[in-house]
């Protein structure tokens, strides 16, 4: 499973793209795994306005994740 971070999230984490193996089965499991490893990033993912996209589609709330899903965390967009 590939995880992508955009904007300030990448600066907080120190990475922008990472593979997670074995892949968590849900978005909440992925967030819990990230928060356990990096508390600052875990908090940042829960901040107001941060959205998640699974396979390039915005999801609201919980989502099941396939083993080769691409999950992106998107902070508020700045526009062009």
């Amino acid at each position: 499973m590939r995880v992508l971070l955009f904007g300030r999230l990448g600066d907080i984490a120190g990475w922008r793209e990472r593979d997670f193996e074995p892949p968590p089965a849900s978005l909440s499991a992925l967030k819990a795994l990230i928060a356990a490893e990096d508390a600052a990033l875990g908090l940042a993912l829960e901040a107001k306005g941060v959205r998640a996209a699974v396979d390039r589609v915005i999801v609201r709330g919980e989502a099941a994740l396939g083993t080769d899903a691409e999950v992106a965390f998107l902070p508020p967009m700045s526009g062009g």
Binding site: P75, P76, S78, G79, G80
Partner: peptide, 27 residues
């Protein structure tokens, strides 16, 4: 729409450091 809603994340680099920009009230 492009200035406020398009999926871009903008970072300004300057002598005072770098900062992420979000849409302005005016946008």
């Amino acid at each position: 729409y492009l200035k406020s809603r398009a999926p871009f994340w903008k970072k300004e680099h300057g002598p005072a450091g770098a900062r992420w920009v979000e849409p302005t009230e005016r946008d």
